[in-house]
Amino acid sequence: MIEWQIPLAILATIMLAPLVGGLLVGIDRKLSARMQGRMGPPIIQPFYDLIKLFSKDALVSTKMQLVSVYVYLTSVVLSLVMLVLGQDLLVLLFVLALGSVSIILGAFSVRSPYSQLGAYRELLLLLSYEPLLALFVVGVYLATDSFMVRDIFSLEQPLLLTLPLFGLTQILVLAMKMNKSPFDISASHHAHQELVRGVLTEFSGPYLGIIELTHWYELVLLLGLTVLLWATNVWVGMALAIVSYLAVIVLDSITARMTWRWTLQVGWGIGIPLAVINLMTMYLVRP
């Protein structure tokens, strides 16, 4: 990337990602509704919701809540920008984790039993998906000899051929991070089975709006990581990302929430072994 293009790329990322993310969420809602035999809202409904949230009073319980929301937004946007600029994947992951930690601390900062219980569950969720993301990064390194995203694009054959099992773990990560069933232990994305919304209970109005916006950025980021699996032809990569997104939506519709123990067991009993098997194979066949 040439010098003058960098600010443009950053600006484009910040402007376009929420549009894409919002539309993807709209499609998700439409598809989920159709699978349940409902009409479903218009595809741009998430944007209406967001505008509505921003027009409400800014109520909070503690100042830390408000700070946590901004740090969450900033760190997710920052990691997306790092992805677009081809930066270090491991650092990207650390920044992303900072965002998760921040929103968890926001939930902890109110002495509310619902919000705090949600925060603990979000931590358990983090414990389930974070190793998978980090191992994905290690896999990328073993395939490219670099942690930099930009070096993935100079590969001759797509990553998925060397990292097939990480295609699956990325789906797990996507489902867990987007709070999809059966992994929606801390708060359900479409509020499937709940009266009180876990880790998000104490956020409302514009602050909930910012969290929603951040989720869109996060969705684009996670799908972007999946695109990396077929970076030799970005269109194929995008198709791959859309397929995994559809898989998550179907999974969300056909399953119900399970316990946090089960989630942890899936992350650790299925996700990590898949990742480790893939890594071991790469290590063994490596010249």
Partner: peptide, 23 residues
């Protein structure tokens, strides 16, 4: 990688307790 995740968990829990206040 796994150890780092555990690390995040135990520290975050503690900070959460410290910052938890009544409005």
């Amino acid at each position: 990688v796994i150890g780092s995740t555990f690390t995040v968990m135990f520290w975050t829990k503690w900070v959460g307790k410290l910052l938890s206040v009544s409005p």
